[in-house]
Computed example of a mutant assay.
Amino acid sequence: MGNSKAYPVFRTGDAADAYRQAGRLCALLEHVDDRIWLFAEMRTPREVRRMAELVPGVPFDYEETREDPATGHFLLFDLDVATLDDAELRTHLPLSFKEDVERGDVEERFLTALGEGMAAIEWNGRWPDDPEADSYGHWNYDGVQVVFHGDEAQYGDWTEEHTVFVHVTKHGDLPRARKLAAHIGSDVLGEAQLGW
């Protein structure tokens, strides 16, 4: 199997523009899965509440590893955020969640719920075959990803900017990535990164 190669093809300080360009790229996919992957890091009680409303019942995790001081065991966040007041919720921040959900209007609602933490939307699919360029779609690897407040497909360090990635075969496909970037008036903005 292995991981896809993720090429950064668009970067901006405007989250809505990054989302819009990712949508333009998704429209080029021959097939888009019915489910998408969401990731969000929440730094304030307000951000937690907005995301909890967006994806009811989603399990939250501590963003940073926490240990029980008495036992040294890792702590899991297993509280219902709806039952905590803001002061109590602040003691658990930052929180995060990762969840696959049904595609549809959730993407736009997710965009409006974004806070200052890192977040991402991932659309898996399949690029169309392009025999002239010796480029073929791959079900396990192809897709589009937008990382808000980040420039790494694997969610590295926080940045001011938002980055759109195209994912291709594990062997890489720079010509396809360049063609996709050109479709949105851009170019490949760096080396291929480890994808999903």
Rank of each mutant, 00 (worst) to 15 (best):
A87P: 02
A87I: 13
A87S: 11
E88P: 01
E88S: 15
L89V: 06
L89G: 03
L89H: 09
L89W: 05
R90A: 08
R90Y: 06
T91L: 12
T91V: 09
T91H: 10
H92F: 14
H92Q: 12
H92R: 10
L93S: 08
P94D: 06
P94N: 00
L95H: 09
L95F: 11
L95E: 03
L95I: 14
L95R: 12
L95V: 04
L95M: 13
L95T: 13
S96E: 14
S96Q: 15
S96I: 02
S96V: 00
F97M: 11
F97Y: 15
E99A: 15
E99G: 01
D100I: 03
D100T: 11
D100W: 13
V101H: 05
V101P: 06
V101C: 05
V101Q: 09
E102W: 04
E102D: 13
E102T: 09
E102C: 04
E102K: 00
R103H: 01
R103Y: 02
R103C: 03
G104R: 01
G104P: 02
G104T: 00
D105H: 04
V106E: 07
V106A: 11
E107C: 02
E107V: 00
E107W: 02
E108N: 01
R109H: 03
R109Q: 14
R109N: 04
F110E: 11
L111Y: 14
L111R: 12
T112V: 15
A113V: 01
A113G: 07
L114D: 10
L114W: 03
G115C: 10
G115H: 08
G115Q: 13
E116K: 10
G117T: 10
G117Q: 05
G117D: 09
M118Q: 15
M118Y: 01
M118C: 10
M118H: 06
M118P: 06
M118G: 14
M118T: 15
A119K: 03
A119V: 04
A119Y: 13
I121M: 07
E122Q: 14
E122L: 09
E122K: 07
E122N: 07
E122S: 14
E122P: 00
W123G: 01
W123Y: 15
W123S: 02
W123M: 09
W123I: 05
N124Y: 07
N124Q: 11
N124C: 08
N124T: 09
N124E: 02
N124I: 03
G125H: 06
R126F: 03
R126H: 07
P128W: 08
P128S: 05
D129Q: 04
D130Q: 13
D130W: 11
D130C: 00
D130G: 05
D130E: 13
P131V: 09
E132M: 09
D134W: 10
D134Y: 02
S135T: 15
S135I: 04
S135L: 00
Y136I: 07
G137F: 06
G137K: 09
H138M: 13
H138P: 01
W139A: 13
N140V: 11
N140E: 12
Y141S: 09
Y141I: 01
Y141T: 05
D142K: 04
D142M: 08
G143D: 12
G143T: 10
G143W: 06
V144P: 05
V144R: 08
Q145C: 02
V146E: 01
V147L: 03
V147S: 01
V147P: 00
V147Q: 11
V147K: 06
F148M: 08
H149T: 07
H149K: 08
H149S: 09
G150R: 00
